[in-house]
């Protein structure tokens, strides 16, 4: 028996919004420690890794580890029908073929029950090693969304160059070019609005703009985002979710051949 209850549907809505355009289907791996999901986009250059820790749920029970193969669009559509403040309980029998969803309104005067058919999702599980990153940039997630959106009007690659002085996002396209530099915040009145740049070694790497734009749509998950860059490893973009866990996106760099 698997059962997980979140107090507010809002967080699940935000999580599903952040991954469902990138990932069509995936396996929710449910175990005693929580729910995780690893899924690639259809072109296999990016990967989403989601972790929802059991402590982040109001109630959590998973007697034995199970894989729930889910169509993300279907799940997203159903969860969207819940009120933001509704409690949501996800459930599945050990050998069940459906994922049950129960929404309860705050006044407990409305209860909705849905079932989604489970599917066989053939997804390879990858071991993601802990990478040594050369650069870690923490910045407001809204700013990251704005920068990627603004540069996406010009070019299909964004070069991210980082030194101790700042981080530069630049692009070139048929119609011209553009670049935006962010400097490290000198005074930090508000942690969430700060730009913090940690540099072990300066680095410049190029990435597909359309994926950065996709990732940056997760801004609702956290006011801050971290970009982790290293030589020879994929970019890791992380949106932490307080006690709940995180959504991480990995993207292969564009390498000149």
């Amino acid at each position: 028996m698997f059962e997980a209850r979140v107090a507010q549907a809002e967080i699940l809505k935000k999580i599903l919004d952040s991954v469902r355009e990138l990932v069509e289907q995936g396996n929710l791996d449910c175990s005693g420690t929580g729910i995780s999901l690893q899924a690639m986009d259809s072109s296999h250059v990016s990967l989403v890794a989601l972790l929802l820790k059991s402590e982040g749920f109001e109630r959590y029970r998973c007697d034995r580890s199970i894989n729930l193969g889910i169509n993300m669009q279907s799940l997203g559509k159903i969860v969207k029908t819940a009120g933001n403040h509704d409690a949501i309980t996800l459930s599945s029998e050990d050998k069940g073929d459906v994922l049950g969803l129960m929404f309860e309104s705050t006044e407990q005067d409305k209860v909705s029950n849905y079932e989604i058919k489970l599917m066989d999702v053939d997804a390879e599980q990858l071991a993601i090693p802990v990478a040594e990153y050369s650069v870690c940039v923490r910045m407001p997630s809204a700013e990251f969304a704005r920068i990627t959106r603004d540069l996406s009007t010009i070019g299909d690659s964004v070069l991210i160059s980082c030194t101790k002085d700042g981080v530069q996002f630049s692009t070139t396209g048929d119609t011209g070019s553009g670049s935006i530099v962010l400097r490290q915040s000198s005074s930090v009145d508000d942690e969430k609005k700060a730009v913090v740049i940690e540099v072990q070694e300066p680095i410049s790497l190029s990435f597909a703009t359309k994926f950065l734009v996709q990732f940056s749509k997760s801004a609702a998950l956290n006011e801050s985002v971290t970009l982790n860059l290293g030589d020879g490893v994929p970019l890791m973009v992380e949106y932490p979710m307080k006690e709940m866990g995180y959504v991480r996106f990995y993207l292969a760099p564009k390498l000149s051949n």
Binding site: L126, S206, N257
Partner: peptide, 14 residues
């Protein structure tokens, strides 16, 4: 022309 490797080439199978 820049190339993007498959993301699986960076991560091992579990």
């Amino acid at each position: 022309i820049p190339v993007q490797k498959n993301i699986t080439s960076y991560f091992g199978n579990r």
